[in-house]
């Protein structure tokens, strides 16, 4: 298992990405991310909304049934990774790995994975605005540039994820994969609308909700003065007095995001930073591969 604390100390994001992918992909021989390419993959029943140009008319003539041809994506899957770099992502859990470090390793691993398959991958880093943008392209040179951009960015500022994610969706030239890595501390409605916009545009949308155990459980004993990493606002709190209400509210927050994403067909992956990175990533990829087969 790849301990995120150990990986965070490596520093070389390219090496980290390769280590993660090598550990993750072993046993997963085909990409779980499917696109549209010339290599025929399978037929499936026509569903309203499918592009008519992929309907096999010859088969229709023989069987009087509509089938849509599916092709295995080979080189032309476009992926745009939207990475939250707001100040709240700087929070580190007990293992010393901040949410941003964890999210950056996820982004690097996905980029490495897709680039290894010959797919195009791009990057958008944002807080209350888009800070860096790398268009979705293939090739090792581009991957290296993307990893360098990931390594340089630091978490700061407040979040306005809705506009940034919406812009990320718009930047994809055609249908592709949108990966959002964030702690989702923003106005829920704005983010929800941006993600909804991605699905309406025909993109596969994946949300990696990165959290720490401390955010879920609020384990601080006694009186603590909690300082908001984004706004600097401070609140004196006591776990005895307000811990239970916090945990209930936070559980409701997580459940709302899970149900929202499920409603829009968005893959919602909740990851706690103390979880081994390869295990978390592999579990998700297996889940996605299985879903694509069915």
């Amino acid at each position: 298992m790849l301990d995120p604390a150990v990986l965070a100390t490596l520093g070389d994001l390219e090496l980290v990405s390769r280590v993660v992918v090598d550990g993750t992909i072993s046993g997963v021989h085909r990409s779980p991310f499917h696109g549209y390419s010339a290599e025929f993959s399978q037929y499936r029943h026509y569903r309203p909304g499918d592009d008519l140009k992929f309907v096999d008319w010859k088969l229709f003539a023989r069987t009087d049934r509509l089938y849509t041809k599916q092709f295995r994506e080979t080189t032309n899957l476009l992926c745009q990774i939207a990475l939250d770099t707001s100040g709240s992502m700087a929070y580190a859990g007990a293992n010393g790995v901040s949410k941003f470090q964890y999210a950056r390793m996820i982004a690097g691993a996905i980029a490495h994975l897709l680039a290894g398959q010959g797919d195009g991958v791009g990057l958008v880093t944002y807080n209350d605005r888009i800070r860096d943008y790398l268009p979705s392209r293939g090739g090792q040179v581009h991957l290296r540039a993307l990893l360098v951009a990931l390594a340089r960015v630091t978490p700061e500022g407040v979040t306005q994820a809705g506009a940034a994610i919406a812009r990320t969706v718009d930047l994809l030239r055609r249908r592709g994969l949108v990966v959002v890595i964030s702690d989702l501390y923003d106005e829920d409605e704005a983010v929800e609308q941006a993600l909804q916009r991605g699905t309406y545009a025909g993109h596969d949308v994946v949300v990696f909700h990165v959290l720490t155990r401390e955010e879920i459980e609020l384990p601080f004993n006694g009186d603590v003065e909690l300082v908001d990493l984004e706004t600097g606002q401070a609140i004196v709190s006591n776990r005895i007095a307000s811990g239970r209400a916090y945990r209930e509210d936070f559980a409701g927050f997580l459940e709302r995001w899970r149900s929202r994403c499920a409603g829009y067909g968005i893959d919602y992956v909740r990851i706690v930073t103390e979880a081994p990175l390869d295990v978390a990533l592999r579990a998700y990829l297996h889940h996605r591969a299985a879903r694509l087969v069915t």
């Binding site: 709240s88 992502m89 700087a90 929070y91 949410k99 702690d183 501390y185 720490t212 955010e215 609020l218 601080f220 006694g222 009186d223 603590v224 003065e225 909690l226 300082v227 908001d228 990493l229 984004e230 706004t231 606002q233 401070a234 609140i235 004196v236 709190s237 006591n238 005895i240 007095a241 307000s242 209400a245 916090y246 509210d249 936070f250 927050f253």
Partner: peptide
């Protein structure tokens, strides 16, 4: 009144201020 430990936290969205004097 012990000086409360300052802990940076990602978001105070769900944190409620406590009546700490009563707790003490």
């Amino acid at each position: 009144r012990h000086r409360a430990r300052q802990i940076p936290f990602p978001s105070l969205r769900f944190v409620r201020a406590s009546t700490t004097a009563a707790a003490r």
